Simulated assay, not measured.
Amino acid sequence: MNLKKNINKYLISLITIVFLFTGVGCSDSSSSSNSGAQQNAVAATQKQEETKSPIKLDKAVVTKHVDGDTVYVKLEDGTETKVRFIGVNTPESTTKHEQYGEEASSYTKSQLLGKTVYLEKDTSDTDQYGRLLRYVWLEQPKEINENEIRTKMFNSILALNGYAEQSTYPPDVKYADYFKKFAAEARQNSRGLWAINSNGTTKGDGIAAPNTSSSSSSTSNASSSSNNSSAAVQQAPAQQTTQSNNQTATVYITRTGKKYHAAGCKYLRKSQSAISLSDAKAQGYEPCSVCNPPQ
């Protein structure tokens, strides 16, 4: 009888222990399941936030810089490639050295090296050197407007801070008007390369320097012109108009070379860009000897 009671007690204890362990296991499993669900939810939220941008962007990490407007990045698939910023041009600091080239290069390095960036493509994928052509966003924009472009796109930041000029090559012209505006703002406020001289870099930006002739020279010219014949005086306005029209005439340049061309010239490539004659001259371009553009 006692033996039977002892066996019953033993069985009851065993069942109780099994029940307790089963409960603990379920609790641990439930806890683990909840933790996994929370992690998945966080990951999903982060991914959703990354896809909120109104434009298609490729995430990358800047691995090294080349100069002011070129860097190397590592894409999410592990590929490392060189990226050339669209729409802006900084002074050279590699194969040749231009004023402010080292400063522009150092600025880009300090702002981008090791950072996560977001790359936006325009029309072209690469240039003739195999570099990716991209707009570089420091943060993903919530919408596309001037404030977002001004504060989050590095191409714009370079122009705004006076480290780059506008450099437009069709068909990649999506933000060209912004870059033009930002470069003009930097020039007006003498930021960066504009603090060096009125033409910015050694190549200039196509805006002629103001006339610095002395008052005595102006007086002398005025006196001389007053002695001209009436016929010559009548011809002067026409000559000035012709010269003015000439300077605003449209010519064409390419990504390479330092010649400007008339429309239809056989030396123009697909990457041609329209520019005024005065801008072409200010940037150091010379007339093509084949197509005889305006001079």
Rank of each mutant, 00 (worst) to 15 (best):
T51P: 01
V61F: 12
G25Y: 13
K52E: 06
Q38W: 11
L20D: 01
V73T: 04
D67H: 01
S27D: 10
K82I: 03
Y72G: 09
H97K: 15
T94P: 08
K47G: 08
Q99P: 15
V62C: 01
F85T: 03
L57Q: 09
S27L: 14
T22N: 13
S30D: 05
S33Y: 07
D77M: 02
S27K: 11
Q111M: 09
K56A: 11
A37H: 02
T95K: 12
T22Q: 13
T95S: 13
D58K: 09
L113T: 14
T94E: 10
E80V: 14
Q48V: 00
D58V: 00
G68L: 00
S93I: 07
F19M: 14
T116V: 10
A37M: 03
A43V: 08
V24N: 03
S93W: 09
Q99F: 12
A37N: 10
A43L: 11
L20M: 07
F21N: 05
T116H: 07
V24K: 00
P91L: 15
V88Y: 12
G87S: 08
V24Y: 13
L57P: 03
S105K: 14
Q48R: 08
G36I: 01
T51F: 01
S53D: 02
D58R: 03
N34R: 13
G68I: 00
D58P: 00
D28C: 10
A43T: 11
G36R: 12
K47I: 02
K82A: 10
L20F: 08
D69T: 02
S110H: 04
L75R: 01
S53C: 02
A37I: 07
K52R: 10
V42D: 03
I55S: 06
P91E: 14
S30Q: 06
S32R: 11
K115F: 06
F21K: 02
K96A: 14
A44L: 06
Y72K: 13
V18W: 11
E92D: 08
V42H: 03
T22M: 10
G25V: 13
E76H: 01
